[in-house]
Write a protein that binds this DNA or RNA. Structure first.
Ligand SMILES: [Mn+2]
Ligand SMILES: [Mn+2]
Ligand SMILES: [Zn+2]
Ligand SMILES: [Zn+2]
Lengths: 184, 184
DNA sequence: GCCGTAAATTAGATTGGTTCTAAATATAAA
DNA sequence: TTTATATTTAGAACCAATCTAATTTACGGC
């Protein structure tokens, strides 16, 4: 029996369902369903982006005044430990989270830091099963990230390189190190 | 012509070659080959692990007294921007780096934080090409991580769950949050 | 080989996202 | 209700990473 019976491929990522799944995972772990945890789960269930812990706190604080940093960070860590959400990494200094559990590929632009969800089965299910049989490693989640340059940035990049060549001598390297922008 | 002409599948990951490749990338970017940068590249070329920036600094400081944090962090950031190394993320609080450029899968254990390199082509080349054609996204590097539990930890985990059930009431959740160990 | 200059390194201060702490509060069982 | 335990909160503390200003170095040109 294969685990992937794709007969009923209903939208398992609808916010409401995602929300219920989060709560269920917390409950199963023996944790209490407090208003704060529910608010955090609701936020994660409804976002289409890849928010950082700090973003989750800031945006929740706006609608839920009084919620504390500690609670948000603890809950995010708990959800990560439970495998409900997955930590993402790229150049940014913040920790970002993946809340989309549908198997997909993250296209992470090195220039604008945009993250595009790409669907197009790369045979991830088969890979997970093969790994389990060959190594005994039991996968909980897959992180498949392609790091590179998005279509727009490819063009922008050409302009930048041209400009760089013109200015020649000085400014050999763009040095966008200190950029704090977070287009996620 | 396909890019993967596997007739001459020589060991492209031999430390010496890896080292030369790092230096070449720095040079190509118009950066100077200082003793410090060479030491850092040598360290990265020879490690079989997935070291954190802090680890690189600490271990280099032992053999190269006087090397500064700033230099190590700046060089690692530069190498990341050049695509020579790739940032990894998992539960740990430090930033870790992938120095293995051979296409492979990282098996990241959620329990012991061990990272196992797994080879077994999941069709990554094909995926990169498909993505480029369909979305215009130009991939520079692939990060394919399976997050879960390694063979040993799966067994340990069963024991832990059994113990947890026995102790019942108290200690419902292991709470290994504060663990600072870094088995990487 | 020496010079001149931009690049790089260094020690130390600073930053800021995250974690820790102890007191207050909420939850659920008895 | 009472009691025990879990959770939240505000703010302090932490510390990996970054920044800064002064010093040193690398390297092309002579
Ligand atoms: Mn995604
Ligand atoms: Mn690896
Ligand atoms: Zn972009
Ligand atoms: Zn393990």
């Amino acid at each position: 029996m294969t685990t992937t019976s794709d007969s009923t491929k209903k939208t398992t990522s609808a916010p409401a369902e995602k929300y219920r799944r989060y709560l269920q995972m917390l409950k199963k772990a023996g944790l209490r369903l407090t208003p704060q945890r529910m608010a955090i789960c609701a936020y994660l269930a409804h976002t289409e982006r890849h928010p950082s812990a700090y973003q989750v706190y800031e945006e929740l604080a706006a609608t839920h005044p009084g919620i504390s940093r500690a609670t948000v960070y603890n809950t995010l860590n708990t959800l990560r430990e439970l495998g409900a959400i997955v930590e993402l990494s790229f150049g940014s200094d913040h920790t970002h989270y993946e809340t989309n559990t549908q198997p997909h590929v993250n296209l992470i632009c090195l220039r604008c830091h945009k993250i595009i969800d790409y669907y197009g089965d790369p045979g991830v299910d088969a890979l997970m099963e093969r790994v389990r049989q060959e190594t005994g490693f039991q996968s909980v989640a897959v992180k498949l990230d392609l790091v590179g340059f998005c279509a727009e940035c490819r063009l922008q990049r050409l302009d930048e390189i041209r400009a760089m060549l013109k200015t020649a001598a000085q400014d050999k390297f763009p040095q966008t190190r200190n950029s704090k922008e977070e287009i996620v």
